[in-house]
Design a protein around this nucleic acid. Structure first.
Lengths: 201, 201
DNA sequence: GTCTATATGCGGATAGAC
DNA sequence: GTCTATCCGCATATAGAC
């Protein structure tokens, strides 16, 4: 694995470090020693730290893109597709911490330029798919806002998983992939149900 | 404002820098020069950088705690209280970027110890209030999971606001405090409505 | 309390040998 | 491609004068 392709090896190690500690908390020395090469070697492959960061992001984001559209077409009913979508996104967010943490870091500190890249590479296609799916399910709800809500539910459940154990009565299992999928679907279906949701409770 | 209380002045400036750039991206020099004192002076008031970070967090989190319980008691009906709660949390998250960004940074990189502190100081009381409110509204839904969903919706809408402009059809106004409040309430009420939400759409 | 001065090591980055 | 050696400014942190 060492000499297969140093550049790729560097990117794998660097992206892991950046994801877990943040860009400025990780030095070129840190990366080099984790990879098992010298700092000078890093600079042979990447012009500077900024380029290493960008390349790490590209590497992770590009690698992770799966054929979502094909996946959804396997399902006939709209509801099955919704379920497949939610199941997919929860699995991505909860199952790939490296990817997910990099996304959060970009949302926090990414430049406009880098965010636009993230958007084109990662968000645009699945988001449009979701918006269309929701639009077909319900003429009532604003599809974009509902789609944002779905994504928010998944992201929030991930982020809050770290503090939930401290909050009384919140068991660890409520942050499992299955539980979150169920909860998001429950909320989504309620929202899409076209009946009087605004009644006073 | 300079000589009123240097320590407080330092904390205000430091917390702003930490919130916007991240802990490791901000050096003691940065803080000192932004405050208008020397680095040595910083070390007179705070033992080391870690202590300055902790003190900044305490400063912000302590300052921001408002009497939420009293606010809710002004409303008679459960639904009005729900609305008041959602309105409150959206205003906190969207209206106080310094606070919100520090929360996100802690959720990402905070140590267990610091997260526990955040929890006790900030999350516990409003979260319990919300859980109880939801439990009273509906015997059906799991109140804790629903409460997590509410918080997730608010956090997610905030984080996604930065990429929404890039996504087709998403206008900037959908991230306004009013729009988000409306959307969260809409979703929450749908979820709490005890009718058959699981029907196929 | 706040400063000047300084210690010591880490940070990004490069030149040139192999 | 990868290394050794090095530059130099910045980082955290302290001692001691005022």
């Amino acid at each position: 694995m060492q000499n297969k392709d140093t550049q790729t090896h560097i990117l794998m190690v660097a992206s892991g470090l950046f994801a877990s500690k943040g860009y400025s908390a990780v030095s070129m020395r840190d990366v080099a020693s984790a990879v098992g090469v010298t700092v000078a070697n890093l600079y042979y492959h990447f012009k500077d730290k900024e380029e290493l960061i960008r390349a790490s992001l590209s590497h992770v984001f590009f690698e992770r893109m799966s054929p979502l559209e094909g996946l959804l077409q396997q399902y006939a009913s709209l509801d099955d597709r919704l379920e497949a979508f939610v199941s997919w996104i929860v699995q991505v967010i909860f199952g790939d911490e490296l990817f997910t943490r990099l996304v959060f870091r970009e949302l926090m500190d990414g430049t406009d330029e880098r965010l636009e890249y993230l958007n084109k590479t990662v968000f645009q296609e699945p988001f449009d798919l979701l918006v269309n799916l929701i639009a077909e399910c319900s003429g009532e709800a604003a599809p974009v806002m509902t789609a944002v809500s779905v994504v928010s539910l998944v992201l929030g459940n991930y982020q809050l998983a770290r503090v939930l154990p401290y909050l009384t009565g919140a068991s660890v299992e409520s942050s499992s992939i299955e539980a979150v999928t169920r909860q998001v679907l429950l909320v989504l279906r309620s929202t899409l149900a076209p009946r009087a949701a605004r009644r006073k409770v």
